[in-house]
Amino acid sequence: MNLEKVVFGFFILLALTLNFGFFLGDITDVAHHNVYELFAAIVVSLIATALKFGERTQIGAVLLAASLVADLQLIAAAVVWTLASHALELGLTPSVLASIVSLSGGALLANIVSVTILVLETVGLHR
């Protein structure tokens, strides 16, 4: 067993699961979407990105790209949240929350791609 691979796989999977957890639920219901979960999703996604830095392979490059997309989407969601509740004094209205959750939904897709590539690579390794 390679510890590096474990850490790598752990963070990529964790990014997906946290992202999924935040995304799950009614798109306009504040009670279904926890700010801590979004924060955790961002942090783990950033860690996953840093872990993919410096990969020379084609697959590594695609993984890094997917990770960067997820970061971008999640940070955009956080910025929307901050703007709505601090800068614009709108509060978390259903429409604001809908855009936050849909942004995290995009990140979820990118994370799914990441995990799929990882699984494909692992399977390919055994063949």
């Binding site: 801590y36 924060f39 942090v43 950033l46 860690i47 840093a50 872990l51 830095f53 410096g54 990969e55 020379r56």
Partner: peptide
């Protein structure tokens, strides 16, 4: 660029982790 990114991996991870810990605590 890959060389720079690889060398920056550890410091960036440290930065993300310490920021996360500090922010969580403050919140």
């Amino acid at each position: 660029i890959p060389h720079v990114l690889r060398r920056m991996r550890a410091p960036l991870l440290t930065l993300v982790a310490t920021y996360a810990i500090a922010i969580i605590g403050l919140v």
